[in-house]
Design a binder for these strands. Structure first.
Length: 667
RNA sequence: GCCGGAGUAGCUCAGCCGGUUAGAGCGAGCGUCUCAUAAGCGCUAGGUCGGCGGUUCGAGUCCGCCCUCCGGCACCA
């Protein structure tokens, strides 16, 4: 039995945060579980490096892009090592083996007739710097600039994704386990039913990326490039033997935001190239911090190393696995983390190890040996093992952890009810005492075995203390998970594994290390970031560009420092709202007529959820006056109203103590 | 707006095909043993199972409508 497991590869424009670590940790638990279950496992992670952001970031830092990526690899590997993520291989998209695979696969898609050169022809408005669809034009003119767009062509390669809709739907029908959890599957199936458009897979004239084999002037689009890591890492196009050994993958562990890429685009690419599809894709949820999305600007990013330093990597791993139903979103807070640490580790498991080893030392001379039939704990352990396996096989990692803890709790109960200290005082209960101590030690051994994939370091130590003779890596669930009888074992008493936290713990939380560690990565602005720059390259309108979503959850965009000159390019003006009305059929859009002092303009703002149009009339606001016009819901918007936009919250307009005259420059 | 998901004890959540007094863990309170990290063990929660109506002998558990929250898409310039 073989099992090839992957996680999403990560963008390298910032250090991994807790959410990224969550994915790797849960995947690592799965990998370790499979190995423990005797399955030959190949676990691969990596970095996604061919992004323009990475290129820009390196340039900003005055570094060679590749050198920058090398450095980031080191940072990522350090984090994964600290969290004991046991990957077997680490793939980078700048590696030769990856380039070979990408070009190979692109070539196969081309040969399958699925890649066509879309030297797309279309209307292009020079003023807008954007393609226009026929339906956008009014009397053949750009509605914004009242000028005739040019008919131009831009070379682009497209992948015939549309061709695979039916096959994908059929696959989903025949293999309901292909995408888990179910919520994600429903979303994708609906998306497929709605139909698919072909997608662009190349960008012309980009140096940072992999050239298309049949058009060296075009680079493979970064997400197309990135997905291929799953096969390049196992030798596709470069090592046929290795490839045959591991492909198809048993499981891709990814974030729920990128299921489309993995369950629509990726399988279609594989079908086109004549490769088997992975058995399963699992879209895990996100980890929030105190209920809020982790965001640099909100200061809600938790560095996984801070968490690991605080209580240890194993407690962090247990927390993430046991407290968050795998597949759902979950929340992290220091309070909760410490609460769980005390309850599960200090009070239950850790204390159990202490009391058992102490009693064995005191009442049994440090050795245990059964003197009869096992008591009730043997049955509990067998049940725990069974439900643990059932849960883990279904990727219900949290239930697997709970099953192990049921055994731990039962062992504590067992000790209370069998009262070894009473048995030890009597002279006629030697056999009973021996059996009770043996059973308790054996139950701890089984529990530690079950938790070994989740807490590898600590559980290895527990196994050592309860006299497990087998090397940790050689332990196997079916053989070693069974209740042992007969042989005597020596136990070791040692310091508490997880000292209980007392008192005002939260105050001791280390200052987030993000600041000290990321100075070379991000400089935080004091204020919310400026609105994003205008959309970069024009896209073929009839063939929507793939969402900019990378193959990992996009890290919060780093806001780069700009010069005063750059800032002065932005023309901020005071404006007064003269008319405001809801854009019909829209959820957030308000259409406004504003007074800029010298002129009146129409613009559209996405603030309807927070402001009633009527309440806006007469109000003084700040707008970006020199923004390119855009058409929203058929309305031309000439400018952007500034508002604070909290993550997931309602926007709040900028206001003045005393409204200045319309047209006043803001800076 | 469309399409999904969810609303169950203070908190986090279980509750399969409808069926006796609705559960677990944490927290809190009380009691208790003493091997243990002032840990363990036992007891204690009287919760309109979001609301209204319906099907049924009987509904968190099925149906309809409504409310709230979350996610995806559409429209955040």
């Amino acid at each position: 039995m073989r099992f090839y497991l992957t996680t999403a590869i990560d963008y390298v424009n910032s250090r991994p945060h807790l959410g990224t670590a969550y994915e790797k940790i849960t995947a690592d638990v799965i990998a370790r579980y499979k190995r423990l279950a005797g399955v030959e496992t190949h676990f691969v992670m990596g970095n996604d490096e061919h992004s323009q952001n990475v290129f820009r970031k390196a340039r900003e830092l005055g570094e060679d892009p590749l050198a920058y990526c090398d450095r980031m690899e080191g940072e990522f590997r350090d984090v994964w090592a600290r969290l004991t993520v046991s990957f077997d291989d680490f793939i980078r998209t700048t590696e030769p083996r990856h380039r070979i695979a990408v070009q190979h696969l692109a070539q196969r898609c081309l040969e399958a007739g699925d890649v066509y050169e879309g030297d797309y022809e279309g209307w292009y408005c020079v003023s807008c710097e954007a393609f226009k669809q026929e339906k956008d034009l009014v009397d053949g003119l750009c509605p914004i600039h009242q000028r005739r767009p040019d008919w131009i062509r831009e070379k682009n390669h497209f992948f015939r994704l549309s061709r695979y809709r039916d096959r994908l739907l059929a696959h989903f029908e025949q293999h309901p386990e292909f995408l888990m959890p179910e919520v994600r599957r429903n979303e994708i199936v609906r998306l497929l039913e709605a139909g698919l458009d072909d997608i662009s897979i190349s960008r012309a004239g980009q140096a940072w990326g992999i050239p298309l084999p049949f058009d060296e002037a075009s680079a493979v689009y970064v997400w197309f490039d990135a997905l291929i890591n799953y096969v390049s890492a196992v030798g596709y196009g470069s090592d046929p033997q290795l490839f045959a050994r591991w492909w198809p993958a048993g499981l891709h562990v990814i974030g729920k935001d990128i299921t489309r890429f993995h369950c629509v685009v990726w399988p279609a690419m594989l079908m086109s190239a004549g490769l088997d599809l992975p058995t399963q894709v699992f879209g895990h949820g996100f980890v929030t911090f105190k209920g809020q999305k982790m965001s640099k600007t909100l200061g809600t990013v938790v560095d996984p190393l801070d968490a690991a330093d605080r209580l240890g990597p194993d407690p962090l791993r247990l927390f993430l696995v046991k407290e968050i139903p795998y597949g759902s979103d979950g929340d992290f807070s220091w309070e909760r983390f410490e609460e769980r640490y005390n309850a599960d580790l200090a009070n239950n498991l850790g204390n159990l190890v202490s009391r058992v080893t102490t009693m064995v030392e005191r009442y049994g001379g440090g050795r245990v040996q059964p003197k009869g039939a096992p008591w009730r704990l043997a049955g509990v352990a067998a049940d725990a093992l069974a439900s643990y396996r059932r849960a883990m096989d279904q990727l219900a990692l949290h239930e697997g952890a709970s099953a192990a803890f049921r055994l731990i709790n039962a062992t504590n109960e067992f000790i209370a009810e069998s009262e070894p200290w009473v048995l030890a005082r009597r002279s006629d209960t030697g056999a009973e005492l021996a059996q009770v101590l043996y059973d308790a030690a054996e139950a701890v051994r089984v529990a530690a075995l079950l938790l070994l994939p989740i807490m590898p370091i600590s559980c290895a130590e527990i196994l050592r203390r309860v006299g497990e003779a087998t090397q940790v890596d050689d332990l196997r669930l079916d053989r070693d998970g069974a209740w042992r009888t007969g042989a005597a074992r020596s136990l070791v008493r040692a310091d508490p594994l997880w000292p209980r936290l007392e008192g005002d713990r939260v105050g001791l939380i280390p200052a987030t290390r993000a600041a000290s560690r990321t100075e070379h990565v991000v400089t935080e602005p004091l204020n919310p970031p400026a609105p994003p720059p205008p959309a970069p390259a024009p896209e073929r309108p009839s063939v929507p560009a793939p969402a900019p979503a990378p193959v990992v959850a996009a890290p919060t965009q780093a806001t780069e420092r700009i010069s005063i000159d750059d800032f002065m390019k932005i023309d901020l003006r005071v404006a007064k709202v003269i008319e405001a009305e809801r854009v019909p059929k829209s959820k957030k859009l308000v259409k406004m007529r504003i007074d800029l002092g010298t002129e009146h303009r129409t613009l559209v703002a996405g603030i309807a959820e927070a402001y009633e149009p009527d309440a806006l009339i007469g109000r003084t606001v700040v707008i970006v006056a020199n923004l390119r016009p855009a058409v929203l819901m058929g309305i031309e918007s000439n400018g952007m109203v500034l508002a604070a936009s909290p993550e997931g919250g309602a926007p709040a307009l900028l206001t003045f103590d005393t409204p200045p005259a319309p047209g006043t420059r803001v800076r």
